[in-house]
Simulated scan of single mutants.
Amino acid sequence: MQKAYLNRLAPDVRALAEDLEYALGFEIIVKVSQHLPRRAADEPGGLECEVDQSGARIVIPDPDWFPDGSVLHELFHVRRFLLEGIPLLVDNKAYVRWNPCVSSAVTYHDNCMEHLVIVPEELCRRPERLAHWERAIRQVWGTLAVTASHEADCRPGALVNWAFIEHVLPDSATRREAVTVLDRLGFREAAACFADALAPVLNDKEKLVKRWFEHLHLQPEMASLRYLNVWDNACRETPLNIVAAAARSGAQRNQRPAR
Protein backbone atom coordinates (compact mmCIF):
# COMPACT_ATOMS: atom_id res chain seq x y z
CA MET A 1 0.00 0.00 0.00
CA GLN A 2 1.31 3.46 -0.81
CA LYS A 3 3.07 4.85 2.25
CA ALA A 4 0.92 8.01 2.32
CA TYR A 5 -2.17 5.88 2.88
CA LEU A 6 -0.55 3.20 5.02
CA ASN A 7 0.68 5.76 7.53
CA ARG A 8 -2.87 7.06 8.05
CA LEU A 9 -4.10 3.73 9.39
CA ALA A 10 -4.34 2.62 13.01
CA PRO A 11 -1.53 0.23 14.03
CA ASP A 12 -3.68 -2.93 13.88
CA VAL A 13 -5.12 -2.12 10.43
CA ARG A 14 -1.68 -1.17 9.14
CA ALA A 15 -0.31 -4.47 10.45
CA LEU A 16 -3.11 -6.40 8.71
CA ALA A 17 -2.35 -4.65 5.40
CA GLU A 18 1.37 -5.33 5.71
CA ASP A 19 0.82 -8.97 6.70
CA LEU A 20 -1.48 -9.49 3.71
CA GLU A 21 1.01 -7.91 1.34
CA TYR A 22 3.82 -10.09 2.69
CA ALA A 23 1.75 -13.28 2.40
CA LEU A 24 0.43 -12.45 -1.09
CA GLY A 25 3.74 -11.17 -2.45
CA PHE A 26 2.46 -7.88 -3.85
CA GLU A 27 1.39 -4.40 -2.80
CA ILE A 28 -2.29 -3.62 -2.23
CA ILE A 29 -2.88 -0.50 -4.31
CA VAL A 30 -5.14 2.38 -3.28
CA LYS A 31 -6.77 4.13 -6.23
CA VAL A 32 -9.21 7.04 -6.47
CA SER A 33 -12.49 6.88 -8.37
CA GLN A 34 -15.03 9.69 -8.21
CA HIS A 35 -17.72 7.37 -9.60
CA LEU A 36 -18.31 5.48 -6.34
CA PRO A 37 -21.91 5.93 -5.15
CA ARG A 38 -22.60 8.21 -2.20
CA ARG A 39 -23.92 6.14 0.72
CA ALA A 40 -24.73 8.85 3.24
CA ALA A 41 -25.22 12.61 3.23
CA ASP A 42 -22.12 13.17 5.36
CA GLU A 43 -19.87 10.78 3.38
CA PRO A 44 -18.44 11.29 -0.13
CA GLY A 45 -18.92 7.59 -0.91
CA GLY A 46 -18.12 4.10 0.26
CA LEU A 47 -14.92 2.18 -0.37
CA GLU A 48 -14.70 -0.87 -2.62
CA CYS A 49 -12.12 -3.53 -3.31
CA GLU A 50 -11.12 -5.07 -6.61
CA VAL A 51 -9.34 -8.41 -6.70
CA ASP A 52 -7.99 -10.68 -9.39
CA GLN A 53 -5.29 -13.33 -9.63
CA SER A 54 -2.57 -10.71 -10.06
CA GLY A 55 -3.43 -8.11 -7.46
CA ALA A 56 -5.77 -6.20 -5.16
CA ARG A 57 -6.93 -2.61 -5.13
CA ILE A 58 -8.86 -0.57 -2.58
CA VAL A 59 -10.95 2.04 -4.39
CA ILE A 60 -11.71 5.29 -2.60
CA PRO A 61 -13.93 8.21 -3.72
CA ASP A 62 -11.54 10.98 -2.68
CA PRO A 63 -7.85 11.13 -1.68
CA ASP A 64 -8.85 12.57 1.69
CA TRP A 65 -11.49 9.93 2.43
CA PHE A 66 -9.71 6.90 3.89
CA PRO A 67 -11.64 5.94 7.06
CA ASP A 68 -9.92 3.36 9.19
CA GLY A 69 -12.96 1.10 9.75
CA SER A 70 -13.87 1.03 6.07
CA VAL A 71 -10.32 0.09 5.08
CA LEU A 72 -10.40 -2.73 7.62
CA HIS A 73 -13.61 -4.01 6.03
CA GLU A 74 -12.09 -4.03 2.53
CA LEU A 75 -8.94 -5.75 3.76
CA PHE A 76 -11.11 -8.55 5.13
CA HIS A 77 -12.57 -8.99 1.65
CA VAL A 78 -9.06 -9.15 0.16
CA ARG A 79 -7.94 -11.67 2.77
CA ARG A 80 -10.85 -14.00 2.09
CA PHE A 81 -10.69 -13.97 -1.69
CA LEU A 82 -6.93 -14.00 -2.19
CA LEU A 83 -5.31 -15.49 0.90
CA GLU A 84 -7.99 -17.89 2.14
CA GLY A 85 -9.12 -18.89 -1.36
CA ILE A 86 -12.81 -18.21 -0.80
CA PRO A 87 -14.51 -18.10 -4.22
CA LEU A 88 -16.30 -15.01 -5.47
CA LEU A 89 -19.81 -15.29 -6.83
CA VAL A 90 -19.74 -13.66 -10.29
CA ASP A 91 -22.15 -13.37 -13.19
CA ASN A 92 -22.04 -16.02 -15.90
CA LYS A 93 -21.70 -14.21 -19.22
CA ALA A 94 -22.94 -17.34 -21.01
CA TYR A 95 -26.33 -17.08 -19.28
CA VAL A 96 -28.92 -16.73 -22.06
CA ARG A 97 -30.77 -13.95 -20.20
CA TRP A 98 -27.64 -12.07 -19.18
CA ASN A 99 -27.80 -8.29 -18.98
CA PRO A 100 -26.10 -5.64 -16.82
CA CYS A 101 -28.87 -5.96 -14.21
CA VAL A 102 -28.00 -9.65 -13.77
CA SER A 103 -24.38 -8.70 -13.22
CA SER A 104 -25.32 -6.11 -10.59
CA ALA A 105 -27.66 -8.55 -8.84
CA VAL A 106 -25.00 -11.26 -8.60
CA THR A 107 -22.48 -8.78 -7.18
CA TYR A 108 -25.09 -7.67 -4.63
CA HIS A 109 -25.75 -11.23 -3.48
CA ASP A 110 -22.04 -12.03 -3.18
CA ASN A 111 -21.49 -8.91 -1.08
CA CYS A 112 -24.41 -9.79 1.18
CA MET A 113 -23.06 -13.31 1.71
CA GLU A 114 -19.59 -12.03 2.51
CA HIS A 115 -20.96 -9.52 5.00
CA LEU A 116 -22.47 -12.31 7.09
CA VAL A 117 -18.91 -13.47 7.78
CA ILE A 118 -16.91 -10.25 7.61
CA VAL A 119 -19.02 -7.78 9.58
CA PRO A 120 -19.11 -9.78 12.86
CA GLU A 121 -15.30 -9.84 12.90
CA GLU A 122 -15.23 -6.18 11.93
CA LEU A 123 -17.49 -5.28 14.88
CA CYS A 124 -15.26 -7.27 17.24
CA ARG A 125 -12.30 -5.16 16.19
CA ARG A 126 -14.19 -1.88 15.79
CA PRO A 127 -17.32 -1.82 18.00
CA GLU A 128 -17.88 1.81 17.01
CA ARG A 129 -18.70 0.59 13.48
CA LEU A 130 -22.02 -0.63 14.88
CA ALA A 131 -23.51 2.81 14.23
CA HIS A 132 -22.54 2.56 10.54
CA TRP A 133 -24.20 -0.82 10.09
CA GLU A 134 -27.28 0.18 12.10
CA ARG A 135 -27.71 3.19 9.83
CA ALA A 136 -27.26 1.04 6.73
CA ILE A 137 -29.81 -1.59 7.77
CA ARG A 138 -32.30 1.08 8.89
CA GLN A 139 -32.11 2.67 5.42
CA VAL A 140 -32.65 -0.71 3.74
CA TRP A 141 -35.75 -1.58 5.76
CA GLY A 142 -37.08 1.96 5.37
CA THR A 143 -36.93 1.47 1.59
CA LEU A 144 -38.51 -1.99 1.84
CA ALA A 145 -41.35 -0.54 3.92
CA VAL A 146 -42.15 1.96 1.16
CA THR A 147 -41.99 -0.62 -1.65
CA ALA A 148 -43.70 -3.42 0.27
CA SER A 149 -46.61 -3.57 -2.18
CA HIS A 150 -44.39 -5.17 -4.84
CA GLU A 151 -44.14 -8.55 -3.16
CA ALA A 152 -42.26 -10.51 -5.84
CA ASP A 153 -39.61 -7.80 -6.19
CA CYS A 154 -39.18 -7.42 -2.43
CA ARG A 155 -38.78 -11.08 -1.50
CA PRO A 156 -35.01 -11.53 -2.11
CA GLY A 157 -34.11 -8.22 -0.45
CA ALA A 158 -36.37 -8.88 2.53
CA LEU A 159 -34.96 -12.36 3.16
CA VAL A 160 -31.34 -11.31 2.65
CA ASN A 161 -31.58 -8.34 4.99
CA TRP A 162 -33.43 -10.33 7.63
CA ALA A 163 -30.54 -12.81 7.58
CA PHE A 164 -28.17 -9.89 8.19
CA ILE A 165 -30.17 -8.86 11.25
CA GLU A 166 -30.35 -12.42 12.58
CA HIS A 167 -26.67 -13.25 12.11
CA VAL A 168 -24.98 -9.87 12.50
CA LEU A 169 -27.26 -7.41 14.33
CA PRO A 170 -29.66 -9.53 16.42
CA ASP A 171 -30.25 -6.64 18.84
CA SER A 172 -30.81 -4.06 16.11
CA ALA A 173 -33.24 -1.23 16.79
CA THR A 174 -34.58 -1.90 13.27
CA ARG A 175 -35.64 -5.46 14.11
CA ARG A 176 -39.24 -4.53 14.99
CA GLU A 177 -39.69 -2.55 11.77
CA ALA A 178 -38.26 -5.47 9.78
CA VAL A 179 -40.73 -7.89 11.37
CA THR A 180 -43.59 -5.52 10.53
CA VAL A 181 -42.53 -5.39 6.87
CA LEU A 182 -42.10 -9.18 6.70
CA ASP A 183 -45.57 -9.70 8.17
CA ARG A 184 -47.09 -7.27 5.69
CA LEU A 185 -45.46 -9.14 2.81
CA GLY A 186 -46.22 -12.58 4.21
CA PHE A 187 -42.50 -13.47 4.22
CA ARG A 188 -41.86 -13.87 7.95
CA GLU A 189 -41.76 -17.69 7.90
CA ALA A 190 -39.70 -17.79 4.69
CA ALA A 191 -37.23 -15.26 6.13
CA ALA A 192 -36.83 -17.29 9.33
CA CYS A 193 -36.26 -20.49 7.33
CA PHE A 194 -33.71 -18.72 5.14
CA ALA A 195 -31.71 -17.38 8.09
CA ASP A 196 -31.82 -20.76 9.84
CA ALA A 197 -30.68 -22.59 6.70
CA LEU A 198 -27.63 -20.35 6.36
CA ALA A 199 -26.41 -20.73 9.94
CA PRO A 200 -24.61 -24.10 9.58
CA VAL A 201 -22.91 -23.23 6.27
CA LEU A 202 -21.68 -19.68 6.79
CA ASN A 203 -18.07 -20.89 6.69
CA ASP A 204 -18.53 -23.00 3.54
CA LYS A 205 -19.05 -20.63 0.60
CA GLU A 206 -20.04 -23.32 -1.88
CA LYS A 207 -22.76 -24.73 0.39
CA LEU A 208 -23.80 -21.21 1.36
CA VAL A 209 -24.30 -20.27 -2.29
CA LYS A 210 -26.33 -23.42 -2.93
CA ARG A 211 -28.75 -22.74 -0.06
CA TRP A 212 -28.88 -19.04 -0.92
CA PHE A 213 -30.00 -19.71 -4.47
CA GLU A 214 -32.47 -22.43 -3.46
CA HIS A 215 -34.27 -20.31 -0.86
CA LEU A 216 -34.30 -17.15 -2.97
CA HIS A 217 -35.47 -19.03 -6.08
CA LEU A 218 -32.54 -17.73 -8.13
CA GLN A 219 -31.44 -19.38 -11.38
CA PRO A 220 -28.04 -21.11 -10.89
CA GLU A 221 -27.28 -20.60 -14.59
CA MET A 222 -26.90 -16.87 -13.97
CA ALA A 223 -23.75 -17.16 -11.85
CA SER A 224 -20.39 -18.84 -11.46
CA LEU A 225 -17.90 -19.39 -8.67
CA ARG A 226 -14.55 -17.73 -9.38
CA TYR A 227 -11.46 -19.13 -7.67
CA LEU A 228 -8.36 -16.93 -7.65
CA ASN A 229 -4.84 -18.31 -7.19
CA VAL A 230 -2.33 -15.48 -6.84
CA TRP A 231 0.65 -17.81 -6.54
CA ASP A 232 0.03 -19.46 -9.92
CA ASN A 233 -1.54 -16.31 -11.40
CA ALA A 234 -4.58 -18.44 -12.23
CA CYS A 235 -8.33 -17.87 -12.33
CA ARG A 236 -10.91 -20.65 -12.59
CA GLU A 237 -14.66 -20.17 -13.02
CA THR A 238 -17.29 -22.88 -12.62
CA PRO A 239 -20.95 -22.14 -13.45
CA LEU A 240 -23.27 -22.92 -10.55
CA ASN A 241 -25.42 -25.29 -12.63
CA ILE A 242 -22.29 -27.41 -13.27
CA VAL A 243 -21.40 -27.30 -9.57
CA ALA A 244 -24.96 -28.43 -8.73
CA ALA A 245 -24.92 -31.21 -11.33
CA ALA A 246 -21.60 -32.54 -10.02
CA ALA A 247 -22.95 -32.53 -6.47
CA ARG A 248 -26.06 -34.47 -7.52
CA SER A 249 -23.96 -36.99 -9.44
CA GLY A 250 -21.71 -37.53 -6.43
CA ALA A 251 -24.72 -38.00 -4.14
CA GLN A 252 -26.22 -40.58 -6.51
CA ARG A 253 -22.95 -42.54 -6.64
CA ASN A 254 -22.82 -42.60 -2.86
CA GLN A 255 -26.36 -43.99 -2.72
CA ARG A 256 -25.75 -46.91 -5.07
CA PRO A 257 -26.06 -50.21 -3.24
CA ALA A 258 -22.93 -52.31 -2.96
CA ARG A 259 -22.88 -55.48 -5.06
Rank of each mutant, 00 (worst) to 15 (best):
C49T: 14
D232Y: 11
N233Y: 12
D204M: 11
R253P: 00
R135C: 11
L202N: 07
C193W: 05
I58F: 00
S104W: 07
L72P: 01
P257M: 07
T174D: 06
I29C: 06
A15R: 06
A56N: 04
E189W: 13
Q139R: 10
F66A: 03
Q139V: 14
E74A: 12
S104Q: 15
R80E: 07
V168H: 05
F76L: 11
V179L: 15
D12G: 02
F81S: 00
C193A: 14
N241V: 08
R256W: 13
S103Y: 13
W98L: 01
L89T: 09
M1T: 08
F164Q: 12
W133M: 13
H150I: 03
D91H: 13
F76K: 01
Y5N: 04
G186W: 05
V106P: 01
S70W: 06
R226I: 13
Q139H: 13
A163N: 12
R79W: 10
V243W: 11
R14G: 05
N233W: 09
G55S: 15
R226K: 15
Q255T: 04
G45P: 00
L72G: 05
S54G: 05
S103D: 14
P127A: 12
D42E: 10
Y227L: 03
A247H: 08
V181H: 04
M222G: 09
I28E: 08
G55H: 05
A173D: 10
V30P: 00
R14L: 02
A105K: 08
D183F: 06
T143Q: 09
H167W: 07
F26I: 06
L83R: 09
D153K: 07
R256C: 09
A40Q: 10
V117W: 11
R126Q: 02
H150M: 05
R226G: 03
P239L: 07
L159I: 08
A244R: 13
V140E: 05
L47R: 01
H115Y: 04
S149P: 00
R211W: 15
P127W: 05
L83G: 02
W162V: 09
L83N: 03
P61C: 01
L218I: 01
R80M: 14
Y227Q: 10
V140K: 04
V119Y: 00
P87K: 02
A94H: 09
R80T: 03
A246V: 08
G142M: 04
E18I: 12
E50S: 11
E206R: 13
R188Q: 15
N233T: 12
M1E: 10
N111A: 12
V96E: 03
P11T: 06
S54M: 11
L89Y: 15
H109K: 00
L130Q: 03
A251P: 01
I29E: 14
I165F: 09
